[in-house]
Lab assay of single mutants.
Amino acid sequence: MQRGKVKWFNNEKGYGFIEVEGGSDVFVHFTAIQGEGFKTLEEGQEVSFEIVQGNRGPQAANVVKL
């Protein structure tokens, strides 16, 4: 599992990016966020996640808020 901080997340569009220290930013879609109810992330929030290869490159999967 990787760890990072949410760079930004757009609730209306349902996606954003996670900053990884020493690495490239990783795309995150709301469907990758674990948990119940409305799935969103806050700027600066710490998360753990896996990186998978999506249609447009690397993206976050199994995102857990820390």
Score class of each variant (00 low, 15 high):
47 V>I: 15
32 A>Y: 03
10 N>S: 14
3 R>D: 10
16 G>P: 00
24 S>R: 14
57 G>A: 04
54 G>Q: 09
19 E>V: 13
23 G>F: 09
41 L>K: 01
20 V>L: 13
63 V>E: 01
46 E>N: 11
37 G>M: 05
25 D>I: 03
14 G>S: 05
46 E>I: 07
1 M>N: 12
38 F>E: 06
25 D>Y: 03
14 G>A: 04
25 D>R: 07
15 Y>I: 04
62 N>H: 06
45 Q>K: 08
15 Y>L: 05
12 E>I: 03
17 F>Q: 04
29 H>M: 03
15 Y>M: 04
50 E>V: 11
29 H>T: 02
21 E>Y: 10
46 E>T: 08
30 F>D: 03
13 K>N: 05
59 Q>T: 09
38 F>C: 05
10 N>F: 04
41 L>D: 01
59 Q>M: 12
56 R>V: 05
49 F>K: 00
55 N>V: 13
24 S>H: 13
56 R>C: 06
23 G>Q: 14
30 F>K: 11
36 E>G: 12
31 T>P: 02
48 S>W: 07
4 G>F: 00
48 S>C: 08
31 T>S: 12
36 E>F: 10
37 G>Y: 06
14 G>F: 02
4 G>A: 05
23 G>R: 15
57 G>D: 03
41 L>F: 03
45 Q>D: 05
41 L>R: 01
28 V>A: 05
46 E>H: 09
64 V>H: 07
54 G>T: 14
42 E>P: 08
17 F>A: 04
24 S>Y: 11
43 E>C: 15
50 E>P: 00
43 E>Q: 15
18 I>P: 00
53 Q>L: 10
45 Q>W: 10
16 G>I: 00
6 V>H: 00
39 K>C: 06
3 R>P: 07
24 S>N: 13
56 R>S: 06
58 P>T: 12
2 Q>E: 14
25 D>C: 06
6 V>F: 01
40 T>Y: 09
13 K>H: 13
65 K>S: 11
50 E>K: 12
20 V>R: 12
21 E>A: 14
38 F>V: 08
29 H>W: 05
4 G>I: 00
51 I>D: 02
22 G>Q: 09
42 E>Q: 15
28 V>I: 08
15 Y>S: 03
47 V>A: 03
48 S>Y: 14
6 V>M: 05
39 K>P: 04
2 Q>T: 15
59 Q>N: 06
13 K>S: 08
22 G>T: 15
39 K>R: 12
21 E>N: 14
43 E>F: 12
9 F>R: 01
55 N>I: 15
20 V>Q: 15
39 K>V: 06
31 T>C: 04
61 A>D: 10
16 G>C: 00
26 V>H: 04
10 N>I: 10
54 G>F: 05
15 Y>D: 02
39 K>F: 03
54 G>A: 10
65 K>H: 14
57 G>N: 03
12 E>K: 15
51 I>Q: 13
11 N>K: 08
32 A>F: 05
17 F>W: 06
20 V>F: 06
50 E>G: 10
18 I>N: 01
5 K>Y: 07
34 Q>H: 05
7 K>D: 03
37 G>D: 04
2 Q>G: 09
53 Q>D: 14
29 H>K: 03
25 D>S: 08
14 G>P: 00
7 K>I: 14
44 G>N: 06
66 L>P: 10
21 E>P: 14
34 Q>F: 15
21 E>F: 08
49 F>G: 01
26 V>E: 02
48 S>K: 12
9 F>H: 01
7 K>V: 09
63 V>T: 02
41 L>I: 13
12 E>C: 12
51 I>S: 11
2 Q>V: 14
11 N>L: 12
48 S>Q: 12
12 E>N: 15
21 E>Q: 12
42 E>R: 13
64 V>T: 12
43 E>S: 11
35 G>D: 12
36 E>M: 06
44 G>C: 13
60 A>F: 01
10 N>Q: 10
34 Q>S: 12
54 G>P: 02
51 I>E: 10
11 N>Q: 04
45 Q>S: 10
61 A>V: 07
18 I>S: 00
12 E>T: 15
26 V>A: 08
16 G>D: 00
46 E>G: 11
28 V>S: 02
63 V>S: 01
16 G>A: 01
19 E>C: 14
21 E>S: 12
19 E>M: 13
57 G>P: 02
2 Q>S: 09
32 A>R: 06
57 G>H: 03
65 K>I: 15
16 G>L: 00
33 I>S: 02
3 R>N: 07
52 V>N: 11
40 T>P: 03
14 G>Q: 03
57 G>E: 03
53 Q>G: 10
45 Q>N: 12
32 A>T: 05
23 G>W: 07
49 F>S: 01
37 G>K: 07
2 Q>C: 15
20 V>E: 13
56 R>E: 07
6 V>A: 06
33 I>W: 02
17 F>Y: 03
28 V>W: 01
4 G>C: 00
4 G>K: 01
65 K>C: 09
50 E>W: 11
55 N>M: 02
18 I>F: 02
43 E>D: 14
18 I>Y: 00
36 E>T: 12
20 V>C: 13
35 G>V: 09
11 N>V: 09
52 V>S: 11
52 V>K: 12
28 V>H: 00
64 V>F: 14
63 V>K: 01
13 K>Q: 07
38 F>Y: 12
43 E>V: 09
38 F>R: 09
34 Q>E: 09
33 I>C: 05
16 G>N: 00
66 L>F: 15
16 G>V: 01
40 T>W: 06
34 Q>A: 11
51 I>L: 12
22 G>N: 15
11 N>M: 09
39 K>E: 05
18 I>K: 00
10 N>T: 05
26 V>K: 03
32 A>G: 11
22 G>A: 15
3 R>V: 11
14 G>T: 02
53 Q>Y: 08
18 I>T: 01
34 Q>K: 14
27 F>E: 03
24 S>G: 12
26 V>W: 03
5 K>V: 10
2 Q>I: 15
45 Q>A: 14
29 H>F: 02
49 F>P: 00
60 A>E: 01
16 G>S: 00
30 F>L: 05
60 A>K: 00
52 V>D: 06
43 E>Y: 11
42 E>D: 13
65 K>A: 13
42 E>I: 08
18 I>W: 00
39 K>L: 07
52 V>G: 10
10 N>E: 06
32 A>S: 09
26 V>M: 08
51 I>G: 06
36 E>L: 10
29 H>L: 02
31 T>E: 06
66 L>V: 15
28 V>Q: 00
32 A>V: 05
61 A>C: 10
39 K>M: 04
16 G>Q: 00
55 N>H: 15
45 Q>F: 06
9 F>D: 00
42 E>M: 12
56 R>M: 07
65 K>Y: 05
41 L>P: 02
56 R>G: 06
10 N>G: 08
35 G>F: 07
61 A>P: 01
15 Y>W: 14
59 Q>S: 12
13 K>F: 05
41 L>V: 09
